[in-house]
């Protein structure tokens, strides 16, 4: 059986496409880049990753311009068919701006950019995104953002990951990552593609990429 094709989206200003593609490869998937002006996902796409960065320089609002590009129509159709979508950081912001996930990402309570390793607590073990980890188990994954405070109604989503300990950005209910009610679309502010190797300090991000292939 051939590896699952995972489309890694690239908008102008997307930064983490290479590390996201490496993470896809690391769990046995086949990464393929898709660009903002593409009207369809690459042939045979099984799952989609929207990596982090500053698409369109965060002009207007983070994620706002990217959410209105042709490729996002294709992603919406993919998600409507139950296909998996993982949005990381700016990818999470794009998913919220696209309406694929509820809520918005507001500026951090500190009003400053924060880069820090974080402990994330599994808040819902029922989605595929945490690889069968029990509720309360902790993943060590770094986050780095200026606009990462999720604001919305937790009842409209499934809260998959919460910041353990202190709330670093003022998000509602310490939300670090949510999925849609169907569980196939996941967005999180922390960066699992930077927690893939012992050499870089943590491998806890692998479960989120492995979930793309399940």
């Amino acid at each position: 059986m051939s590896a699952t094709r995972v489309a890694v989206l690239r908008f102008p200003g997307t930064l983490d496409y290479e590390s996201a593609a490496r993470a896809v490869e690391g769990v046995g998937g086949e990464p393929v880049y898709a660009h903002h002006e593409d009207t369809a996902l690459p042939e045979g796409t099984g799952a989609v990753v929207i990596p982090g960065g500053f698409s369109y320089g965060d002009h207007l609002r983070p994620g706002a311009l990217a959410s209105r590009t042709p490729i996002m129509s294709a992603v919406r159709a993919h998600a409507a068919d139950g296909g998996k979508v993982l949005g990381i950081c700016n990818g999470f912001q794009i998913l919220c701006e696209s309406g694929l996930l509820p809520g918005v990402l507001r500026p951090n309570a500190s009003l400053s950019f924060i880069c820090r390793q974080a402990d994330l607590q599994v808040a819902d073990s029922g989605t595929p995104w945490t690889g069968g980890r029990d509720e309360g188990e902790v993943l060590s994954i770094p986050f780095k953002h200026h606009d990462g405070a999720w604001f919305g109604d937790p009842g409209e989503a499934r809260v998959v990951l919460r910041y353990a300990g202190e709330n670093p950005n003022g998000s509602i209910d310490k939300v670090a990552g949510i999925s849609n009610l169907g569980g196939n679309v996941m967005g999180l502010m922390p960066h699992p593609e930077e927690a893939q190797e012992p050499l870089l300090g943590s491998v806890d991000g692998r479960v989120l990429f492995a979930a793309l292939l399940s």
Partner: peptide, 14 residues
């Protein structure tokens, strides 16, 4: 200071 900087992008920072 350095928490305001992305120290990790590219996933090569050890």
């Amino acid at each position: 200071v350095f928490e305001q900087y992305d120290q990790l992008v590219g996933a090569n920072t050890m």
